[in-house]
Write a protein that binds this DNA or RNA. Structure first.
Lengths: 192, 192
DNA sequence: TTAAGAAAGTGATTTCGGTCACACGTCCAT
DNA sequence: ATGGACGTGTGACCGAAATCACTTTCTTAA
């Protein structure tokens, strides 16, 4: 294995695009590479959430569990997304959510202190603002389809928005995201 | 009516807090004051969405209508919130959402061009990023309570998070936000 | 190759919440 | 004061989806 494989490169994260070469060299070591196996937890319940994670490759789910251990999926995050338990990250408190890999995945972790530092020093807040707005719009669409609570429409919206994800996510997991039972989901996409 | 009443002051919008007096003078004229009566539309369907609105006082609802004119409420916005039809604002296209006043409300509108300009010139992106992250966390909580779709829990979460809003919003409107029928909402808070 | 487990399909039954219908009260404007 | 608009409460009914129980198919690892 060569050295080159272990060090982060400028086009590994789109965040670096707006930085000069010297700025990139300043910040590159703040991003900590880590590899997880399918099924591994990046964040487990009650972890202290020290990092926000850039997903370099793979697929993860951000979930919440209720009192009877029923799972609900807040979001899927795949290549080029940032994800973490945001309430816990921002307040530097214990997680109430879990972040678990649906595939082998590679991440770059950025600590809270380093995150706040680069916002100020390199005015990268515009980058994160854009990501956040996109997320906000996606969330609103999600809320809308949940409000309408028509299982068929929800499934079809997912199909339309994320056709490529459909192959990567088991139906038994997808239903935890759509908020419908495994059985109705199964019955859905055959009667169409 | 005196002059002073018509001009924007530094503590009218928390955004101005991070600006020096001279910076404030530079940008203050970009914010356009407008007053709406209860029931008025700030954004009607198919409007070109030119502004993002800071709610100075009052209460508005951001809604979506489906094909049979059924209404769904994406969010309520009250004092010190920014609101608009974000997809339409960011792409400068026609609105698919409506923004309507539940009370007499005062707003400061900021145009898209001026918005993008002040992000760069005065690095106010950190301010908007913080607002956006807060919105993101609120949206995730909302998604979670919709996923669980237990009417009782949804109502109780709203009660807990926004107790003061409860008095300002008719039950017949609240149910469009909670995603439950007027009747079940009515039956809910007496059998507890 | 096979055994074990995970994921998915399907029928039967139940239940929660939506819809419909109507009554009641309050607040204005005529 | 009267009529109308609006917001709300409540009963009866019905249907879509959850739940339960079981089978079948697909993975994966020994």
């Amino acid at each position: 294995m060569q050295d080159a494989d272990l060090s982060i490169k400028k086009d590994d994260i789109d965040l670096f695009a707006s930085l000069s070469d010297s700025e990139f060299l300043e910040v590159k070591d703040l991003f900590h590479y880590k590899k997880y196996k399918k099924g591994a937890f990046i964040i487990a319940e009650n972890d202290l959430v020290k990092h926000v994670y850039f997903i370099r490759s793979g697929l993860v789910k951000l979930s919440c569990f209720d009192d009877d251990h029923k799972e609900f999926i807040l979001s899927f995050a795949h290549e080029n997304w940032w994800e973490t338990d945001f309430p816990a990250f921002y307040n530097q408190t214990k997680s109430t959510l879990t972040l678990q890999c649906l595939e082998d995945t590679e991440t770059y972790g950025l600590s809270f202190d380093d995150y706040t530092a680069i916002l100020d020093k390199h005015s990268l807040s515009k980058y994160f603002l854009e990501k956040s707005i996109k997320g906000h719009i996606a969330n609103q669409n999600r809320i809308l389809s949940l409000l309408k609570h028509k299982p068929k429409e929800q499934y079809e919206q997912f199909l339309q928005l994320y056709p490529s994800l459909l192959q990567r996510i088991p139906k038994s997991v997808l239903c935890l995201y759509l908020g419908i039972s495994r059985e109705t989901l199964s019955r859905l996409y055959k009667t169409r």
